[in-house]
Write a protein that binds this DNA or RNA. Structure first.
Lengths: 185, 185
DNA sequence: GTCTATAGGGGGATAGAC
DNA sequence: GTCTATCCCCCTATAGAC
């Protein structure tokens, strides 16, 4: 792995573990074993680094969506949930939630990139739910975009809240959503 | 209002606006019009200040619960939602969400206090849902504590996510939850 | 690409005068 | 209770050698 990618992945980890304002070039430097000045060669500013982190998420998200394109809606939704399951396993929160709470402290370029990522997530979950509803697999009474927001907010916040109420609450939420979607009311 | 309370309320505002690691004694100093050294007279350390902020939330939450004790479950739930509606109005996020994302960067005493607040919130919403279900006003198929977690996570995260997807999404979520709870499936 | 050295600012906290 | 003065540390970022 290139040094650039090592920095990128570690920054990604740190933002989801500690938040934007708590992670420093020294954190990266110490762990990777290069000096902070060297990091600036790969990413001129902290803003540039965070933008690259978000873009990596956008790319990986698109790749996940693509890899599941011909699967059934349940498999797609499980694929979406696996992102958060991995976060929970590492006791991290999601990038969108982490940066959204810090939104008023970051560069406008970061805010713009984050809106792109959030829009992409919302669009994909909306598509999955739409497809499942049309196939008679998912059942819900509210507009599909609204249902997508409800599910995304459940995921976003349970990785945060379960840090306080108990780690098992993540699986509880995940399974409940999957069950509830497939139940005929 | 005492200087102590002024500091407390401003710190509360800043944590929900910018996050724990982004707000400084200088922010407080500049706005209030006293020097940073004077703030340490009222709160020896930043940790002490944040703990006082959380305790104020615990007290106000208990007061809200008490003031609605003899009301119907729908009124109680609307009262709970009004906390987040006020946050959304000011484009802030909730204290629990803000500090949960920064959890690994704060003192253990803060973590403990925050767990108390989260537990209190979960208990109250669980009680409200239980009462509504027993009265035949609310309808849901999952365990009552689970349903409480789903609703709380919707609220926690929609104040974050709607910073990115659009402020109107808050009301959408609020009304959808209230409608869905009262719908017979 | 990575280093040393350093600039320039901001952070929380304390001592002691008033 | 609030002030001035100060300490010491951490932060992002840059210049220039290697």
């Amino acid at each position: 792995m290139t040094t650039r990618d090592t920095i990128l992945n570690l920054a990604d980890h740190l933002i989801k573990d500690k938040g934007f304002n708590a992670f420093s070039f020294h954190d990266l430097s110490r762990t990777i074993g290069i000096k902070t000045a060297s990091i600036h060669y790969h990413f001129p500013t902290k803003t540039d680094l965070v933008i690259a982190v978000i873009r990596q998420h956008i790319d990986r998200f698109a790749a996940l969506k693509e890899s599941l394109a011909d699967k059934d809606p349940i498999t797609k939704l499980r694929g979406f949930f696996s992102i958060y399951a991995q976060l929970k396993k590492e006791n991290k929160v999601c990038l969108v939630g982490s940066l959204a709470t810090d939104l008023h402290t970051v560069d406008e370029r970061i805010q713009g990139e984050l809106k792109t990522l959030a829009g992409q997530i919302l669009d994909w979950v909306t598509d999955i739910l739409q497809e499942g509803q049309e196939q008679g697999i998912f059942h819900f009474d509210v507009p599909v975009r609204t249902k997508a927001i409800l599910i995304i907010t459940n995921m976003m916040a349970i990785v945060q809240l379960s840090r306080l109420t108990g780690d098992d609450d993540f699986k509880l939420v995940k399974y409940t959503i999957l069950e509830e979607l497939q139940t005929t009311h």
